[in-house]
């Protein structure tokens, strides 16, 4: 039970960022700056929570992530710069900006003062059962919110006009444009959503796990999220499955100190699995056809 509870806690940030990644890549923009956006989210989450409480923390983090995403969108969508390169630069930028702001605002480079998170809740009725206690008590409200966002995301992509158009743009932007769809606007939306969600993932780390901002606290979770996007075959529901699996790996790796399997092996599993998927050993990975390809409006090359 404690293992499961810990797995859920570790799943949430991966899942939020992965959901963001799904939106960005469905629109055709590869976002390897999820990590950077998450880092931005951790700082702004701490800032908001420090100043106005956890809700402001979540909001600030969302906006902070989206702010970084806006740069990504301008550079990759408007200017058509290679999305990988822009992502690498953004990750560097995020690290620098975050440290800089931490020093300016909190006086030290590497951490913020402690902040309080959301008030956890218990599941009424079930919280009496001793055996279930770790699972049904002290739950962060962000857990159900995340789950809701994923279901909403899946539904939006599948059933709404926006989702249909976003996916169309990621598959064949030229065709989408001939049908009167504004490719740039769709791609901007997808990228901004990814930043907002990755930012929120950062806020979760601050508000619900560490209760303060710590430099480097994302520990590459953004890249695990990227892996979850791929393993989840670019669907929110798939990302949910992948994130739960990866969260479980993480939870296990934290607990196997005594066992014979080195925890590093388990921590590497998400990455190994992703490589296997990409190589087609697990099943075919089918990214959106125009994923990663800059698009020029109106037939310019």
């Amino acid at each position: 039970m404690p293992l499961l509870a810990s797995a859920i806690r570790l799943t949430v940030p991966i899942l939020l960022a992965a959901l963001g990644g799904v939106f960005s890549e469905r629109g055709g923009v590869v976002n390897i700056a999820l990590e950077g956006m998450m880092i931005t989210g951790t700082f702004f989450g701490a800032l908001g929570a420090y100043q106005h409480g956890p809700l402001a923390g979540a909001l600030y983090a969302t906006l902070g992530g989206a702010g970084l995403a806006l740069i990504h969108a301008v550079v990759t969508v408007t200017f058509g710069v290679d999305q990988i390169i822009a992502g690498v630069a953004l990750n560097l930028l995020a690290a620098g900006v975050t440290r800089f702001l931490t020093i300016q605002i909190f006086g030290v480079a590497t951490q913020s003062p402690g902040v309080s998170g959301f008030v956890p809740f218990n599941i009424p009725g079930l919280d009496r059962v001793q055996a279930l206690a770790p699972l049904v008590t002290g739950i962060s409200p962000l857990v159900p919110v995340t789950l809701l966002l994923v279901l909403l995301g899946q539904w939006v992509l599948r059933r709404t006009a926006f989702g249909l158009r976003l996916r169309a743009v990621g598959e064949n932007p030229r065709a989408s444009e001939t049908l009167g769809i504004n490719v740039y606007r769709m791609r901007y939306t997808g990228v901004l959503l990814s930043g907002a969600l990755a930012g929120l993932a950062g806020a979760y780390l601050v508000l619900e796990q560490a209760h303060s901002y710590l430099e480097g606290m994302t520990q590459g979770l953004g890249f695990i999220a990227l892996a979850a996007v791929i393993f989840g075959n670019w669907w929110p529901a798939g990302a949910l499955g992948a994130a739960v699996l990866f969260g479980f790996f993480e939870a296990v790796s934290l607990r196997v100190v005594a066992s014979t399997i080195p925890y590093q092996v388990i921590q590497s599993l998400p990455y190994v699995v992703t490589i296997l998927v990409l190589a087609g050993f697990v099943r075919r990975a089918t990214p959106p056809a125009a994923d990663g390809i800059p698009y020029r409006r109106g037939g310019e090359e």
Binding site: I84, G220, F223, I224, A227, Y271, I275, L278
Partner: peptide, 9 residues
């Protein structure tokens, strides 16, 4: 791009 990032970790 993705495989090398994964290999980093």
């Amino acid at each position: 791009v993705i495989t090398t990032i994964m290999m980093n970790y």
